[in-house]
Amino acid sequence: MKNYPVASRRAWIIRHAMTLGTVAIIVVYAAFIQWVWGWQGIVSLWNGAGWTSALIALALLLCTYVLRTWRIYDYFPKETGGHFGTLLRLVQVHNLLNVMLPFRTGEASFPLLMKREFGLPLARGTSALFVMRLFDLHALLAAAGTGFALETGKAWTWGLWLLFLILPAAAFAIRKPVFRLAAKFLPSRAEKLVEEVEAGLPFDAWAFARAWGATLINWFTKIAVLAWVLGLLGDLPIAAGFGGALGGELSSVLPVHAPAGVGTYPAGITAGALAFGADAGREALEELGRAAVNTHLLVIVSSLVGTALSLFAARPKKTG
Rank of each mutant, 00 (worst) to 15 (best):
Q34L: 01
G261R: 07
V305E: 03
A258H: 07
R175K: 09
W212M: 14
K115V: 06
G41F: 06
A30Y: 02
N3K: 07
I42T: 03
A314G: 00
A173F: 14
S252T: 14
P259Q: 09
M18P: 12
T86F: 06
W37F: 12
M18H: 13
V197C: 03
N95E: 07
V299D: 07
W206Y: 06
D204V: 09
V91N: 05
L67M: 12
L236C: 01
V305N: 00
A139C: 13
P102W: 09
G248T: 05
V293C: 00
G306W: 12
L160N: 03
A182V: 15
A271F: 05
A11D: 10
L122H: 12
V262D: 10
H94W: 04
A271Q: 06
I238D: 02
A7Y: 06
R290A: 01
L55D: 06
T157E: 08
G200T: 11
F148A: 14
E198T: 09
T19S: 04
T146I: 12
C63Q: 13
F84L: 07
A273M: 09
T105V: 13
A59R: 05
G277R: 04
E283H: 11
P316K: 00
W156P: 00
G81D: 12
E117Y: 08
K176W: 08
G281T: 15
G306C: 07
A267N: 13
G85D: 15
G263P: 15
S44D: 07
V131G: 00
H83N: 10
R71E: 08
P168T: 12
G200H: 03
T157V: 03
T152G: 00
F242T: 14
H83C: 06
Y73E: 08
L250T: 03
V253A: 04
K222C: 01
E107F: 08
D235V: 04
F220C: 02
L274F: 10
T221V: 08
A170N: 08
S251M: 08
Y75C: 14
T157M: 04
I26W: 12
D235A: 09
V178A: 10
L97K: 01
A155D: 11
G231S: 04
V43D: 01
V197T: 02
W37K: 05
T69E: 02
H296M: 08
T215V: 07
P168E: 11
A260K: 13
R116N: 00
N98H: 11
P102T: 04
A267E: 13
N98I: 14
